[in-house]
Design a protein around this nucleic acid. Structure first.
Lengths: 335, 335
DNA sequence: CTGTTAGCGCTTTCAT
DNA sequence: ATGAAAGCGCTAACAG
């Protein structure tokens, strides 16, 4: 492996000139720049990241703590991760992967100066990792919205707004009683904030619009779905029968059409459906769903942008909510 | 941040002594070891990874190139990745994540000495990244089995053996004609080797046993599944009707029970089903599947062990196939 | 616009 | 069993 010294000798310039050509931190004459660049190519030089990290206090690596368990949301998680890695590369950063349960990893990678900043996914309402993160003196961004961010930047999809948007859409279509089928009970119990917020937004929007509402958590299985549908559609307490559903559970979508057909219900004639899901999941069905799409890619990108902003220009801490948009397709209609 | 120098001063020993206490590369008296260790704790010292990498030519980081697209196999991929990260930590290594399409990333992270070794998932039969990898002078392990490993280590599940095991199980149960529902056509066209090998093993085993066989690729949708079932179960060319299925497609499992019920078929009375899938996926169904389980965790672990072996003790390159085992549950029975 | 030089924090010979 | 000192390859302050 060629070193910077080799390049300097080859180009007939000094070590520091090579360094400055690479960093662009001072003006270099066209002539020497070209000489250096050709020497770099000739020797197939590339900088040693360890040496650079040692001298500059920058590793050009971001730490990403991701939930790698087999969850309902695997596909969403993958999209986040892909977006983070891709965006990081545009900032010339690489991504070091930490698993959710390796709480000590946060401390380790920062104290060893392995990373310049940290991203943490799947934040719970009172996530115990937040105080840890807040102590470390590295920029960090939470992907999710905890009760108390403790001075950390956050970015997330506006799940409450997503539910509201879905409800308003259905109310505009004259539905007077709407069901909500959400994340599994386990997610609620962990206080995964997306689950809580989507429910809350739904309830509020229904109340505001004066329409009936029924909520159910649901596992990703046909049995659970059937049961949930029964509970929602046959709800005795409701003044009017439920004629529309908001579904916030990616795992159920492949099953939903069948399950409703099993009850003799056609979409959208008998029942309208709006899903809250990543775009590609909403489009994967034979009949694409009317959807408020979860822009996993945008969120991941925003998260990286936010750490990099704090890193490069110490912009202030911010809490950013990504605005939902609804795309109507053929699974919702007026009644 | 405390440095090694600070620790040496605090402990009243020399810099190198601290280093040797940390590395264990020479014998240290109990007394000084304790002094150093307490100084380390007192100052909350941790070594600077960049400095260490510079001086030792080891980064303690493994590169993992993973497919982060929204594929049918997301859950399997996640399990691999989780296994790799977890196992890497037991070797005191961290994991740098590269995306599949970032072919230049392989070159970059090695030439910058960011990683000590590389793992590459989702290998295709003639994967163009293999010659690249083979050129880099770093230990590498392919997770998958290409036509020509070009001197690289490989580890994979024995998908052909998995199909054979499934077929033999069904043959033992007196089934005389077996259907195979496999990965989407797209996977075959990419020559994802797992898809090819599973099909090949199936065909061979059926021939060897003298039983009928019908194969179909299938997307993860109800429509595609229905069509595939029709093609397989109503196959005119077959001497005997298909009475059992081998399914190698995780995405179909939530739909399969419904789809068969739709044809008036009960499992296992009318039709036996054996799936090739990760254990947790096979168990997720209301009625757990008889399964040849894909031990994603074992494969990921083996991959890390293999790079670390090459790194620490330059063991020879090896090709390791993980042996399949079948667990009978209630979805297969004798006829 | 360019060169010289002092570290960055660690590993590892060489000496004792 | 321990210490002294020479790098590892780079960045950035200082000097011109």
């Amino acid at each position: 492996m060629a070193t910077m010294n080799d390049v300097a000798r080859e180009a007939g310039v000094s070590l520091s000139t090579v360094s400055y050509v690479l960093s662009g931190k001072r003006t270099i004459s066209e002539e020497t720049r070209l000489a250096v660049q050709s020497a770099i190519r000739k020797l197939d030089y590339s900088p040693h990241s360890g040496a650079r990290a040692l001298a500059s206090n920058r590793s050009n690596v971001l730490g990403l703590m991701a939930p790698l368990r087999a969850d309902v949301n695997v596909s969403v998680i993958m999209q986040f991760v892909a977006a983070v890695v891709t965006t990081a590369r545009t900032y010339n950063q690489d991504v070091l992967l930490l698993t959710q349960d390796d709480a000590g990893g946060l401390e380790r990678v920062t104290s060893q100066s392995m990373v310049d900043g940290l991203l943490m996914m799947d934040i719970e309402a009172r996530d115990p990792r937040i105080p840890l993160l807040a102590k470390l003196r590295k920029p960090a961004v939470l992907i999710g919205l905890p009760d108390d961010p403790q001075g950390l930047s956050c970015v997330d999809f506006d799940f409450a707004g997503a539910s509201r948007t879905a409800v308003r859409h259905l109310v505009d279509l004259n539905h007077r009683s709407i069901g909500f089928i959400g994340s599994p009970q386990a997610s609620l119990e962990r206080h995964a904030t997306y689950a809580d917020r989507a429910r809350k937004g739904f309830t509020e929007a229904c109340e505001a619009a004066g329409v009936g509402s029924v909520l159910r958590a649901c596992e990703a299985s046909m049995a659970a779905l059937t049961e949930a549908l029964t509970a929602v559609l046959d709800d005795d307490g409701a003044a009017t029968a439920v004629t529309a559903l908001v579904v916030h559970n990616e795992g159920l979508l492949p099953l939903l059409h069948e399950a409703l057909a099993g009850r003799g219900l056609h979409i959208p004639e008998d029942i309208s459906v709006v899903v809250i899901a990543p775009e590609d999941v909403a489009l994967a069905a034979a009949r694409p769903w009317t959807a408020v799409s979860i822009p996993a890619h945008d969120i991941g990108r925003a998260a990286v942008e936010m750490v990099m902003d704090r890193l490069n220009s110490d912009k202030p801490v911010e809490v950013r909510l990504i605005v939902p948009t609804l795309v109507q397709r053929e699974t919702s209609s007026a009644r």
